[in-house]
Each structure stands twice: as structure tokens, then as C-alpha cells.
Write a protein that binds this DNA or RNA. Structure first.
Length: 528
RNA sequence: CGGAGUUUAGCGCAGCUUGGUAGCGCGCCUGCCUUGGGAGCAGGAGGUCACAGGUUCGAAUCCUGUAACUCCGACCA
């Protein structure tokens, strides 16, 4: 309830309600209507301590998923579509994906991959060729069964992933060891009909890239699987500033049809895990199903060894939930579509002086390769703009007003800490790149510390339960390797195995469920 | 797919108990005035009350059904 006007609820999405004073009381937009009068005193009570920042977003501590939905809508990243479970990527959201594409694509090319495009429709018979694969995807496949009034002879699935159709094509293309390796990536949309959807994290249609490679030897394919996991790690940690746990999926969590699945697991601010990327070693499974053979140097026909690896728009959910705070989005400088937002300040009389100076700064930064924008609109007050671009996650704000010009300086405010500093105008083009790098680094470090603070060894099942439900975080446990024990953990705690880390912080001897000798040390968490 | 809640202007809500001219705030438009943390004043536009049936002289309001969304649990990138 709003403590001023007694409106019962706070609003969710628009510029109205939702903010919380230092005293933990909520005020709705009536704050903006109240003039002098009997409510003035209450207003002062409410605003007494912390009146600097207006918030229109549900605090994370109050309701994390509400916070998430508030943030992505307020930051204008997406909108709901009329089709259930599907979202519209609005320009600000799509630009984030484009930035991810740009950086990932660069890395794929640098490791010898080329882009191609395969059809959206996959014949039903293709799915039958790999047993696990069909079983894994069947429940969520939409089918095209007729065109106009004519029923199709064979149903067509709308792709949930492309291993099958690519396997079929590779069987045509590959004849000799000289044709190998085949290193192809595709940027595409895929469909998996989900029961429960969440913007970016789980939607019925989503965007991703899927790499599909074929190799002459087992070892080469295994190396490729790990190489791509490294590529993802580099991208996620260095561009998105999200620390990840690298490891192998347990059999129950692996990709349907893979021999081994590897993943990067990231921790969201509510302590839940999100798989940031996967890389699969498929062995000969798909080669056998689709008869992908080559004639080797020794004149023998052999099956190829294949891999596949992917990262989806889900990663945007991670970006938001790892860095975002009660003031909205927080984007790491390297991925932020706009790195610096210039807000010119001053009444109309001084605009003629301020604007040219601001434009000059903008041009200089632009020339220096900084992604910079200026909001010189007169419709909104500077304070409004400050809050707006903080909510949208712009890493650095540059304020320039008449007082600054008199002193030959500008004010820089960083989104991650809120700190402001003044910089003389002739230092700006050198200071900003350094500042952006500092922000990138400190965002990564902060996320890393958060992850560390919310991860620990679970002594037993009850303790594991405590970690994932109450403390919210990751639990490291020993596991004997039997699916029953893994299932039991899930039943009793709601946590699933995230992965078997390559470099666990500790090795645990006994299975957390049955107490027998542990084969693996595994991270468990509740997950998205 | 089960349990709970919601659906009234672009957004957030009131109105429903006890049927009778559809309201408030934000946002939007026009003008004036303002600009260093979501300014002020004046005027204005905007609604098949989710949908489909039913009861009634009359339904946002009562009854039945359907759908969508949100939250919580079983399947998943």
C-alpha cells in the first residue's frame, strides 16, 4: 500500500508507483501530484532519508521475478506478443543480442568456422534416426501437417535444433577425409513448445546459434567440443562480465543424443543457476543414424565424429539477472550498445553555450571508438534523464552544464557504483576508455564475489536443501553416479545437478544421498 | 499439466457486497513556464468494463462457461 494516498497496490510497469524509501515504505506516483497541504508532512517522512533516486521497479529483495519483469519492460527490451509464450525483441533488447552475435561470430570465424543456413522444417522421419534424440524433443515439437487444404504426406517438425537435418546434409557432402573437418555454424530461430515461459529465459520461439562440426577422429571432435567451450567462456566472462563454472553435465541432464555435454553455469542474483552455453560431443551417434561416412587414408570407410554447441538469447536473461540492481539494468561496457550517455544541463539561456560543447565532446569520444549518445531533448529534466539511463543500464553518464564549462570540466557518473567524478575537458577522451575498463573489471569481480559467497559444500541432504532454498545459492556435493541418488536430491530439495566442475574447489568422498563412495563432485542448484 | 490470484483508458488501480450517467492517478496532446537526481500551472483527447452465453425493463456489477496473464509445484536452452 502506498503510504501517502493509500492506493492499495503499487503498479508494476509504468511510470507510476513503486518506490521504496529508506524507511522501507512505499510511495506511489501520488508523490508527483502532491502539492502543499495536509499530505506534505507525510511526504517529507517518506522522502526524508533517501530522496535522490526514484525507483519504479520492484526491489529484488521483495520479489525477484517481479523485479526481472519490471526491469525488462521498463528498460524497453521486449514486449509480450499475442502468441502465448513468445516475445517481441524491441530494438534495445535486440541490440544486446546483436552485440552478442558480433562478438561470438568474430570468435567463431577466428577458430575456422563458417556460417550457413539450414531449413526451419524437418521431416518427421529424420527424428526417428536417433532414438534418444526423438524421445528428448518429442513433447515440445510443433508440427506442420497440412498446407492449404492438402494434407502433407510426411509431417514436418519446426526445428527444435538442427542435428538431424544437418546430419543428413553432411552425409551428402562428406566423402573423403579430405572433406574434413566440416566446421559450420548457423544463426537461427528454433521452437520448443514450453509449458511455462519467461521472457528471454524460456520462450516458445527463441534465437540462438548452433555450431555443427564433423571430424575424422574421435580425439579431434573432443578437442573441438572443448575448444568451443573455451570460446564461450572467453565471451561470457570477458564481454558479459559473468563468471562461470565449467564442467560436464550428468547423464540425466545431457543433450538427447550426445555422448557428453559440457556447460557453463552462471549464478543469478537470486542464487539460481542459469546455463549460459553448452557444447556437446556427439561421437558417432548422429553419424550412424544418418550414415555420415568418409573414406580414410587407409582406404576404409569410417563414421565421422560430430559435435554441436550453442548459445541462445537466454544469455540476455543472465546478463540482466547477474548485473541488474534495484535501479534497473546494468550493462557491462564491452557489450553495452551505448557506453556513454551525455546529458547536457542548463536553462534555455545557456543552451547555446552548452550544446556545442557537448557535441564537441560527443564527436571526440565517437572518434575515439566510444559508443556515445547524447540526450539533448528539452522535454525531460536532467534528473529524469539520470534515472532513465540508469534504469536502462548505460555504464557511464556524462553531465555537462554551465558550471562545468566555467571550470572547463565535465562530470562522469558510473552506473555500477554511482560514484561521480569531475574530469577536465581535455582529459575526457583518455579518461573514459580507462573508466569503462575499470567498470568492466569491477562488475566481473563483483559477480565473482557474489558467486563465491553463495556457494558452499553441503554436508548432507538437509544442508543442501538449506543452501538452495533458504540461503539461495550453489551447493557442492559428492555423488556416487547413480541416477536414483540424483533424482532423490531433486525430489527433496528442488535442486538439479548443474555440472561436474573441471576444477572443483574441493573433492568430496561420499555421496550426499547414499553415503557410498562418491565418483564425482557435483554442483547442485535450483535453476532457470 | 495441477493449486492460487488477476483481467475496467497506453500503464497502475477504484467502482462490483446492495444492478440504473464509467471514475482516479500516471502517461499522452496544446500552450505558458522550467532544467545539476523523475518540476509547475491551465486546457484537452482517450473505454464494445477479457471473451461467449444466461438472468433482468436495465449488467462492469448477479449466474455459467472459455481464454489470457501472474505467482507456486511436476518437464526443459
Amino acid at each position: 500500500m502506498c503510504c501517502l494516498c493509500t492506493q492499495r497496490n503499487v503498479c508494476r510497469r509504468d511510470l507510476t508507483v513503486n518506490w521504496r524509501s529508506a524507511a522501507q515504505r512505499r510511495v506511489c506516483s501520488c508523490i508527483m501530484q502532491i502539492k502543499l497541504g495536509n499530505k506534505e508532512k507525510k511526504r517529507e517522512d517518506c522522502m526524508a532519508k533517501e530522496k535522490d533516486f526514484v525507483k519504479e521497479i520492484t526491489p529484488q529483495s521483495e520479489d525477484f521475478s517481479r523485479w526481472y519483469l519490471d526491469t525488462i519492460t521498463k528498460a524497453d527490451l521486449m514486449d509480450y506478443s499475442p502468441v502465448r509464450g513468445c516475445i517481441v525483441f524491441k530494438p534495445d533488447g535486440y541490440e544486446l543480442w546483436e552485440a552478442c552475435q558480433r562478438e561470438l561470430d568474430r570468435r567463431f570465424k577466428a577458430t575456422g568456422h563458417r556460417n550457413a543456413y539450414f531449413p526451419l522444417f524437418i521431416p518427421e522421419s529424420f527424428f526417428e534416426k536417433e532414438k534418444e534424440h526423438v524421445a528428448g524433443f518429442n513433447p515440445e515439437l510443433p508440427w506442420v501437417t497440412e498446407v492449404g487444404d492438402t494434407k502433407l504426406e510426411e509431417r514436418l517438425a519446426i526445428r527444435p535444433t538442427s542435428e538431424t537435418i544437418i546430419g543428413y546434409m553432411y552425409s551428402q557432402w562428406i566423402q573423403s577425409y579430405r572433406d574434413l573437418p566440416v566446421l559450420i555454424n548457423q544463426w537461427a530461430n528454433v521452437v520448443r513448445w514450453e509449458k511455462r515461459t519467461m521472457p528471454f529465459l524460456r520462450t516458445s520461439e527463441f534465437l540462438w546459434q548452433e555450431g555443427h562440426t564433423a571430424h575424422a577422429t574421435d580425439q579431434e571432435a573432443r578437442e573441438e567440443t572443448m575448444r568451443m567451450l573455451d570460446v564461450y567462456t572467453d565471451f561470457v566472462e570477458n564481454e558479459l562480465a559473468i563468471p562461470v563454472i565449467r564442467g560436464q553435465k550428468t547423464p540425466s541432464e545431457k543433450f538427447p543424443g550426445a555422448i557428453a555435454t559440457y556447460s557453463l553455469e552462471a549464478m543469478m542474483k537470486d542464487g539460481k543457476a542459469l546455463q549460459a552455453a553448452t557444447s556437446h560431443y556427439l561421437g558417432e551417434n548422429f553419424a550412424q543414424g544418418f550414415d555420415i561416412k568418409f573414406l580414410d587414408r587407409d582406404n576404409e570407410r569410417k563414421f565421422v565424429h560430430t559435435t554441436s554447441w550453442g548459445m541462445s538469447t537466454r544469455i540476455l536473461g543472465a546478463l540482466i539477472m547477474v548485473h541488474g540492481d534495484d535501479r534497473g539494468l546494468q550493462l557491462p561496457p564491452r557489450i553495452a550498445p551505448t557506453q556513454v550517455m551525455i546529458v547536457p544541463i542548463g536553462p534555455a539561456k545557456t543552451r547555446d553555450r552548452v550544446l556545442p560543447a557537448a557535441r564537441q565532446v560527443m564527436n571526440a569520444l565517437n572518434d575515439g571508438g566510444i559508443r556515445v549518445q547524447m540526450d539533448a531533448s528539452e522535454d525531460q529534466s536532467p534528473g529524469w534523464k539520470f534515472n532513465e539511463y540508469e534504469m536502462r543500464g548505460v555504464p557511464v553518464r556524462l553531465e555537462l552544464g554551465p558550471r562545468d564549462l566555467d571550470a572547463d570540466q565535465a562530470v562522469l557518473a558510473r552506473r555500477d557504483t554511482g560514484e561521480k567524478e569531475t574530469v577536465s575537458l581535455d582529459q575526457i577522451t583518455t579518461r573514459i576508455p580507462t573508466l569503462l575498463a575499470e567498470i568492466q573489471q569491477s562488475m566481473f569481480t563483483r559477480a565473482q564475489e557474489f558467486q563465491r559467497e553463495h556457494s558452499r559444500i553441503a554436508a548432507n541432504l538437509a544442508d543442501l536443501h538449506e543452501i538452495v532454498r533458504t540461503e539461495r545459492g550453489f551447493a557442492l556435493v559428492g555423488w556416487c553416479g547413480r541416477a536414483e541418488c540424483e533424482d532423490k536430491i531433486k525430489e527433496e530439495t528442488g535442486a538439479t545437478s548443474r555440472n561436474i566442475p573441471f576444477t572443483p574447489p574441493a573433492h568430496i568422498d561420499a555421496c550426499v544421498t547414499c553415503g557410498q563412495k562418491a565418483e564425482h563432485t557435483v554442483w547442485f542448484a535450483r535453476s532457470y
